Amino acid sequence: MAIEILQTRPLVASCERALAQRYTVHKLHEQVDPDAWVVANGARIRAHAGSGVQVSLMDRLPNLEIIAGFGVGVDNIDVHAARAREIRVTNTPDVLSDAVAELTLGLMISLARRIPQGDRYVRAGKWPGGSFGLFSELTGKTVGIVGLGRIGKEIAARAQAMKMRVVYHGRHQQPGVHYVYYDDLEAMARDSDWLVVIAPGGKGTERMVSRSVLEALGPEGMLVNVARGSLVDEPAMIELLQSGGLGGAALDVFEHEPQVPEALLGLDNVVLSPHQGSATRQTRDAMGALLVANLDRHFAGEPLISEVV
């Protein structure tokens, strides 16, 4: 009999095609009454493809064996509950590192040189009335990276190519890493021109970039968040951007996205992006292929490629 799997939200088209070729796929987000469908059919589901799986759904899928997550972050999957139920969890690391690192540097250059604002300046016909102004550059600046994982290391390599000095903060110093390590985030922010946030979301990292960290970064400092909106004290950040206590911010993520605080929309010292760190066709296709490969390996009884442990 065909293995039945569940989707609760759309996935990239190439991934959906590959899943449909191998499995019987049920798309809960397309059901007229999702709750009634799960009650009637949940016992047949052996796998979930995608993210956003909490304990309330697991409890209604008694034969669930694996959650194949789409993305590197697993803060939207109740991993603890899955382990307690002996449900395996996978994610899609590595394949998105380059795309996120590229966007990070793009955001940094955009903020330093005010590229989006310059575009608006030209389109509004203001250039004939005077020059746009002088801003900053990355060369010679220190960037502090919060979370030197796979993506953080790719960001660091690209920052060095821009002639920046790299330092980092994490739960512990990493052996074999030659960048200067700070065990105190506030101290690193004080010593940095740029603070790039790429640590995991979830419990334990909420608002780790606190008001005191932002104040330490200071009126010339620049914040970049490509991780999760929950890692930054968003109200404090907005207040400091408005008052001049923080120099600028480039944000790909927000605390309550897709809603973005209205106060950010009118600020010229910010660059805003709609959570598109991995949003390239080649990367999303690779993420989908890795999701499917993990499912295939699970049902073949083979070792998983990227199990969350």
Results as ranks from 00 to 15, higher is better:
2 A>Y: 15
215 E>N: 04
16 E>V: 10
155 I>D: 10
284 R>L: 12
257 E>H: 03
136 S>C: 14
78 D>A: 10
247 G>I: 02
241 L>H: 01
304 L>I: 04
15 C>R: 07
275 H>L: 03
51 S>G: 15
155 I>W: 09
196 V>C: 13
263 A>Y: 02
200 P>M: 02
89 V>W: 12
208 M>G: 06
173 Q>C: 13
130 G>R: 14
253 V>Y: 11
239 E>F: 02
192 S>H: 06
14 S>E: 12
30 E>C: 01
181 Y>R: 04
162 M>A: 14
273 S>I: 03
264 L>H: 00
303 P>F: 03
189 A>Y: 01
146 V>A: 14
81 A>W: 09
20 A>G: 03
264 L>D: 00
102 E>Q: 12
306 S>Y: 04
48 H>E: 10
39 V>L: 15
68 A>Q: 08
292 V>L: 04
231 L>C: 11
145 I>A: 08
302 E>V: 08
217 L>D: 03
102 E>S: 08
98 D>A: 12
169 H>R: 01
281 R>W: 14
16 E>P: 06
120 R>H: 14
28 L>F: 00
269 N>G: 03
113 R>P: 05
229 G>D: 14
305 I>R: 14
160 Q>G: 14
91 N>I: 05
89 V>H: 12
31 Q>A: 00
76 N>I: 11
137 E>I: 11
218 G>Q: 02
90 T>M: 07
95 V>L: 09
190 R>E: 02
273 S>V: 06
116 P>N: 00
263 A>R: 05
94 D>R: 14
301 G>F: 06
174 Q>G: 08
61 L>V: 03
159 A>T: 08
156 A>S: 13
213 V>P: 00
300 A>Q: 12
168 Y>M: 06
147 G>H: 09
34 P>H: 04
33 D>W: 02
